[in-house]
Amino acid sequence: MPETKGLLERLNGGETIIVAEGYIFAFERLCYVQAGPFVPEVVVEHPELVRQMYRDFVRAGSDVVQALTYYAHRSKMSLVSRADDLEEANRLALRMAREVADETGTLMCGDICNTGQYTPGDDAKTALIKDMFKEQVEWAAEEGADFIVAETLVNLGEAMLALEAIKMYGKGLPAVVTLTVQIARDEDGKLCTNDKVEATEALRKLEEAGADVVGFNCSRGPDTILPLLEDAKKAGIKVPLAVLPVPYRTIQEEPTFMTLTDTKTGKLCFPVDLDCHLCTRNDIVNFGKRCAELGIPYVGLCCGNSPHYTRSLAESLGRKPEATRYSPNMSLHVIYGADEKLNAYERESAANNNNR
């Protein structure tokens, strides 16, 4: 197999990279992850399932195998009494991701994320976060990651700590940093990080600090995340931009999947009653086409993602991944189809009966 081109080589060469995220929600739906803590215990308990999901997303069109180390940091693992499994879970997830990436000629990335510990001005918590990021970044570099993602960061301060760890301990690997913008607004009424930095300005600060790719992921669906990217595009962010929304139909009044309500009951849907707000495949196609119009080179889907969505995204960009073989073909449907093959059996049977 020829050597796989690196992330920055591909992005600087004008390619679009598709990245499938969302493993935590996918395994929660399969009943291998508990909603609430959302800790990826499945990596240790059923590694064969994780390996298969890696393959499924690549088969559907992902250019990257993102190691399932989201929420596999010290804080979350301790929450479910899994602290003793911390290093094993990280290294196993990374090794399997490396294995599948090598099998399929794709890239593999390590993953660090929000810790739930960040408090501006709290030196003790800052030190704790630095230690958590350090060990995960070192494991990712040692296990052969091609780049490292820091994702779902709601505070610029914590995002800066994550970027600092990648730069210090990532052995020169590219850093992709994606913020999660929820509903906070600054004094001017503009959407901002939870620590009150306007969204585009936060990306600019990450760019200035050395991030190789910056953007937004999670929380917001396609319709409410794309305006953030449009603003960033207009602002002239020079490094490649990334966007990985959740595949839910968020709206202006309910801009994140954590604010979506059930029209039948009026109750909040997050996290286990979101099904009624899932995007259609056509929604994902339209999202992909808009990303292409904007020239966004790093695109994907986050919590709620599954292979059929990743396939739709890939096909919206003109690709035909292996899974396209099983894309819908309604011309062969027993009710809606019009293909001549549908009547071939009946014609053959009639001919056989006439020849008796």
Score class of each variant (00 low, 15 high):
186 D>S: 05
205 K>W: 01
205 K>Q: 07
182 Q>P: 02
173 L>K: 08
177 V>P: 05
171 K>E: 12
193 T>Q: 08
198 E>F: 09
192 C>E: 04
213 V>P: 07
202 A>N: 05
212 D>T: 00
218 C>N: 14
175 A>W: 08
192 C>T: 01
182 Q>H: 03
207 E>L: 13
185 R>T: 14
196 K>A: 06
206 L>R: 08
196 K>V: 07
200 T>Q: 01
198 E>Y: 09
203 L>S: 02
187 E>A: 13
173 L>N: 07
218 C>R: 04
205 K>I: 10
183 I>A: 00
210 G>E: 15
208 E>Y: 10
213 V>F: 07
200 T>V: 06
209 A>T: 12
197 V>S: 03
173 L>R: 15
216 F>V: 13
197 V>Q: 03
184 A>N: 04
200 T>K: 15
208 E>S: 09
217 N>W: 00
194 N>Y: 10
179 L>Y: 02
207 E>Q: 13
184 A>M: 04
174 P>R: 09
190 K>Q: 14
185 R>M: 07
214 V>D: 15
214 V>L: 11
176 V>I: 04
181 V>T: 08
184 A>P: 00
172 G>I: 15
186 D>M: 07
206 L>Q: 05
188 D>H: 04
208 E>H: 12
175 A>V: 10
204 R>L: 14
204 R>N: 06
219 S>D: 15
201 E>S: 05
188 D>T: 04
178 T>Q: 05
187 E>H: 10
207 E>C: 12
190 K>P: 00
175 A>Q: 03
179 L>R: 02
181 V>E: 03
184 A>G: 04
219 S>V: 13
170 G>Q: 14
195 D>G: 02
188 D>I: 05
205 K>E: 08
203 L>G: 02
204 R>F: 08
173 L>C: 06
179 L>C: 03
175 A>M: 07
206 L>M: 02
187 E>G: 08
179 L>G: 00
184 A>I: 03
218 C>W: 09
182 Q>W: 07
194 N>R: 14
175 A>K: 01
177 V>R: 01
175 A>L: 13
183 I>P: 01
183 I>E: 02
180 T>R: 04
206 L>Y: 02
195 D>L: 03
217 N>C: 03
191 L>A: 08
196 K>W: 10
205 K>L: 02
189 G>W: 10
172 G>S: 09
216 F>P: 12
213 V>M: 06
205 K>N: 01
181 V>G: 00
173 L>T: 05
170 G>K: 12
210 G>Q: 15
210 G>R: 00
203 L>H: 02
177 V>I: 15
183 I>R: 01
209 A>P: 14
190 K>H: 14
198 E>R: 11
188 D>S: 05
213 V>T: 05
202 A>I: 00
212 D>E: 15
206 L>A: 10
